[in-house]
Design a protein around this nucleic acid. Structure first.
Length: 680
RNA sequence: GGCGGGGUAGCUCAGCCGGUUAGAGCACAGGAUUCAUAACCCUGAGGUCGGGGGUUCGAGUCCCCCCUCCGCUACCA
């Protein structure tokens, strides 16, 4: 452990309280952080593990509206589900707090006030949609309208869920407020911005001091800093009524931006945990701050939060931000809305007392350097071929033999043979090897090294064959079994950060009060004559039927998604007069080329029957230029021209689009329909 | 298109400040064994290290170009 630090504060990303926790969350940050923290505790280092629910922000208010309840009720529900599941899974937070708490509101409010008084913010007036009947500004998610791209009439102000485009609220055609259904108006509003552009040099210096961070993290930060315009000012307040009120005069109806408020949650939770000594962890140079997060949070933890802390001035900055990539599930992205996930609270019910099987799999297959895939088959294999067959089996044979030969009493070690000394040396060496990997955040490597200790044990038994030797050399067997028991004990010690439930169970089996990490450097932790308990299996095999059950469950959510993908609802009624305003006609593509520096755009030359004109169309993903020369298409000919990537597009090709967003030309089926023929 | 991270045995990954015959686990094949949840132990097979150039006495490891996967970002009238 880096000796210049007297204490360590570990945070894990605050999970958002609008849904339960799934395996992706666990593998991303909660489990690695938990292993790290348990290890630090075991070596006697002063460490606190901080987390809590992130309970503000627009999606929660939307969810409340959908469910006909209050935001507070929503967060209460999920705060409990998440907190309980974490606890049962052995995630050993020192505190699991929440951002709707009083202490957090106070802390976040004070923090903002400090920056405000220091003049850290710039004020900017922008135009936002405002609902006059509800008398409030509308967050993007509170505005729906027709998507300008796919014409889905129910697109949100930030994104169209039909075609996946990201939008600005002002892009929507016929916007309406979800609060009242009325048409919102644009109105000026003032918000406070953190001028990241001005802070860029300081942030850059901070990041560059940490070139030793994981490549994905450091690279991502550099990417933000070095990209074209560099960092941009970012609004730290929002027009919303759910969150921490902005503590400034004239800021009625405004709250702190959820990403301003959430990381301060780490501070408030520490305060709540340690009312008298929290500042030791946040304000002393000999304290170390580490944020465990998923890759989607890198910018907030490496750039925005440090910038906030720098501006404040009293706090230390993160010494490391070990972010993991994403975990996929059976080849597909984990998705809450598509119910493509393994939910922790469900796992805990369906695999009772098998927390460590999942902990083992998620750690051994953690997405440390790249996205990884979780498959149930792999889970089964890791459980059956590694936990059961290697580790569990070693413990079991040792315990069985001890009872068989000595009625459960630990025999004395006599004279060590050469092979014994080799094994003992390897055993004594293991803690440092594992520790080194953990300290470098290489948890996969760490757990592999741990499993290797069990392999050493199995090999040792296979080579010394005590079950044979007992007939010819009883004294020698005593030494061998003593060593096997020492290995078992040290395995229990070293297992604790990874498999806390198993560690506890194994200590119980050995009838030993749990020991701490430094003891594992010694090879005489089990005393001669000590009585151990009767054998008891540490792990059960996981049967094919259990795996099939899970796969079926996933299959069902896949089917549910397909059937849910019905066609978009019919748009509001229109008139024939409006329809005939559209000049839709048949045209033929004469030329086609990819627009340089774009992925989706083709520049087309069309024969419309009356003229030849240029149209830019976003179809490059579906058609190659050389394949569509001569293609007859439908086009909207009297659409106002518009410049796209510097090219004037004089019309629009009409495309059919399916639920996946795939496009197809709509073509007349009879060849005698010539260019210029009207579509009506 | 820009930026970042990947592309190494059937699968999951390590190695990447260049240096002997490219590693591990799982899966597979053969053998040995019976203390053990048909588990353990040994042996083996399996890779032109995404492709192509270059630098070097020597490159998976450095440089250039290209292909491909993931993320952010631009573009879909």
């Amino acid at each position: 452990m880096a000796s210049q630090f007297k204490r360590t504060l570990v945070t894990a990303a605050l999970p958002y309280a609008n849904g339960p926790v799934h395996i992706g969350h666990l593998a991303g940050c909660y489990l690695p952080a938990d292993i790290y923290v348990r290890y630090l505790r075991s070596i006697g280092h002063d460490v606190k593990y901080i987390c809590g629910s992130d309970e503000h922000g627009v999606p929660i208010t939307i969810k409340a509206k959908l469910e006909g309840t209050t935001p507070q009720a929503v967060v209460d529900k999920y705060h409990k589900i998440m907190g309980d599941a974490f606890k049962e899974f052995g995630i050993s937070f020192d505190i699991y707090s929440r951002t709707s708490s009083k202490i957090h509101h106070q802390t976040a409010s004070d923090f903002f006030k400090t920056l405000y008084e220091k003049g850290s913010f710039t004020e900017q007036v922008t135009e936002q949609y405002y609902d006059e009947s509800a008398q409030q500004f509308l967050a993007d998610r509170y505005i729906v309208g027709t998507c300008p791209k796919c014409k889905n009439p129910n697109a949100y102000g930030d994104q169209c869920e039909n075609c996946g485009s990201s939008l600005n609220a002002t892009d929507l055609i016929e916007p309406r407020s979800t609060l009242s259904g009325s048409k919102p108006v644009l109105k000026q509003t003032k918000n406070w911005f953190l001028p990241l552009d001005k802070l860029q040099p300081k942030i850059k210096a901070y990041i560059e001091k940490h070139a030793d961070w994981k490549p994905n993290v450091y690279g991502q930060c550099k990417s933000w800093l070095d990209s074209g315009d560099g960092l941009q000012p970012r609004a730290m307040t929002r027009d919303l009524d759910w969150g921490v009120p902005v503590p400034v005069k004239g800021a009625d109806g405004k709250v702190l931006y959820v990403w301003f408020d959430a990381p301060i949650g780490y501070i408030s939770a520490t305060k709540e945990l340690l009312p008298d000594s929290w500042e030791n962890y946040w304000k002393k140079e000999d304290s170390r701050l580490i944020h465990f997060i998923g890759k989607d949070n890198i910018v907030f933890h490496c750039i925005i939060f440090p910038a906030m802390l720098m501006e404040h001035g009293e706090f230390i900055l993160a010494d490391n931000v070990p972010a993991n990539e994403f975990l996929n599930l059976e080849g597909d992205k984990i998705s809450t809305s598509r119910n493509w996930a393994v939910w922790l609270h469900e796992y805990l019910l369906e695999f009772k007392d098998k927390q460590d099987a999942l902990r083992y799999t998620l750690c051994a297959n953690a997405p440390e350097a790249k996205d990884n895939d979780f498959t149930w088959k792999d889970f089964q294999t890791k459980n059956n071929s590694e936990l059961v067959a290697i580790f569990g089996n070693f413990i079991n044979r040792t315990v069985v033999l001890t009872h068989k030969f000595y009625e459960g009493k630990v025999p004395p070690a006599n004279t060590y043979a050469k092979e014994d000394l080799i094994v003992l040396a390897e055993l004594a060496n293991a803690p440092d090897k594992i520790a080194k990997a953990i300290e470098q955040f290489k948890f996969r490597e760490a757990i592999t090294e741990w499993m290797n200790v069990a392999r050493i044990g199995n090999k040792y038994l296979a080579e010394t064959e005590p079950w044979k030797l007992i007939k010819t050399d009883e004294e020698r067997v005593k030494t061998i079994m003593n060593i096997a028991l020492q290995i078992s004990c040290n395995l229990a010690i070293l297992a604790e950060p990874f498999l806390p439930f198993t560690s506890k169970k194994l200590f119980g089996l050995l009838n030993i009060v749990p020991l701490k990490w430094p003891a594992a450097k010694h090879t005489g932790n089990v005393a001669q004559g000590h009585l151990i308990h009767k054998e008891e299996l540490l792990f059960d095999k996981i049967e094919d039927s259990e795996i099939e059950l899970q796969l079926n469950k996933l299959q069902k959510s896949k089917e549910a998604n397909v059937s849910a993908k019905k066609a978009a609802p019919v748009k509001p009624e229109t008139t024939f007069d409006d329809f005939v305003k559209m000049d839709i006609r048949i045209a033929t593509i004469l030329e086609a080329e990819v627009v340089p520096k774009t992925d989706k755009l083709l520049k087309l030359k069309l024969d419309t029957g009356v003229d030849v004109r240029t149209v830019v169309s976003g179809i490059a993903a579906y058609y190659k230029p050389e394949d569509i020369i001569g293609q007859k298409v439908m086009m909207l000919a009297n659409l106002a021209p518009r410049k796209i990537k510097g090219i004037e597009s004089q019309g629009m090709i009409l495309m059919a689009e399916n639920a996946k967003g795939e496009l197809s030309f709509v073509t007349p089926t009879k060849t005698e329909i010539e260019n210029g023929s009207a579509v009506k």
